[in-house]
């Protein structure tokens, strides 16, 4: 049996909790919530910006061994660059075709809205980011979020008046229909893996998938346009006893260094 003082505190906390949650879902606290958000966002944004600058600093070498290793890697990269230059002419035609597909803003005139990334999930394991645009700006659930000229990074999963939460592609619960730009135009589903990787599943096993093939959205989902770049194939897993093959995808952008994004307004 709990002492009366303890019981009283538990009860009042419980009542206040139920009251606040109830009023939140009724929308009566919206004004106060927006006020708290506008007060907290500068702090979140400041720490988020600092985290990006700090991650950049990790790139510096800390000792002689790291420097030599980095120099050797640079030399190898320079050789590869020479080889790649010779292939440039051949690839330029293909590249032009891909650019046409990817440049959705100009080609299809999809409405989009620019947003600043102000933070990430504070508590919890989800890979999400917080952006400074919300329902007031016409954003709706499942709107795709892109960077640059059409690199998909995730989808809107929660909206408030002034902010929205974006689930990144590398989140555990993220699933998106995608196509590999190979000869067969293989279809599959991209899944996130604990914020670390992207995996493309359900690729028919008889289709030829090559490393460095680009992966774009398939457009099979109503809210996601076709042709948004996701990444490139880094590794293929084709087991003889499995009906489908899998591919590990290298994302086309670094999800940990996002500062500004565009939300494609689908409605």
């Amino acid at each position: 049996m709990l002492p009366s003082k303890t019981r009283k505190i538990y009860l009042t906390v419980g009542v206040v909790f139920v009251l606040v949650v109830g009023l939140h879902y009724l929308g009566w606290l919206r004004q106060y919530e927006n006020w708290i958000r506008s007060f907290s966002i500068p702090a979140l944004g400041g720490v988020h910006g600092l985290s990006i600058r700090m991650t950049d600093n990790y790139q510096f070498f800390k000792n002689r061994e790291d420097f030599i290793k980095a120099y050797n890697e640079c030399s190898i990269d320079a050789e590869k660059y020479l080889l790649l230059t010779s292939e440039l002419t051949q690839l330029s035609a293909e590249n032009a075709e891909l650019q046409t597909q990817l440049n959705y803003f100009k080609k299809k005139q999809i409405k989009h809205i620019l947003a600043e990334v102000v933070g990430r999930e504070i508590i919890g394991t989800d890979k999400t980011i917080i952006i400074d645009r919300g329902g007031n700006d016409g954003i709706t659930i499942n709107d795709p979020v892109v960077v640059n000229d059409g690199i998909l990074i995730g989808k809107i999963i929660k909206i408030a008046d002034t902010i929205s939460i974006v689930r990144l592609l590398n989140d555990n619960s993220s699933r998106i229909g995608s196509t590999i730009l190979n000869h067969d135009k293989s279809l599959g589903v991209i899944e996130g893996g604990f914020g670390i990787s992207l995996k493309m599943n359900l690729i028919p096993r008889d289709e030829v998938v090559l490393v460095n093939n680009q992966v774009v959205t398939s457009g099979l989902e109503t809210t996601t346009p076709r042709g948004l770049l996701i990444g490139t194939v880094a590794e293929i897993e084709n087991e003889p006893y499995k009906p489908f093959q899998q591919a590990i995808i290298t994302p086309a952008t670094d999800f940990s260094k996002l500062t500004s994004v565009s939300v494609l307004l689908t409605q």
Partner: peptide, 25 residues
Amino acid sequence: LSALWLALIISLTTDLFSSLPFGLT
């Protein structure tokens, strides 16, 4: 035990920035 009020305020504030339904955290 009065710090339970702090816990309630902090968790409800973080809920405003969470992808989870409000109140769950």
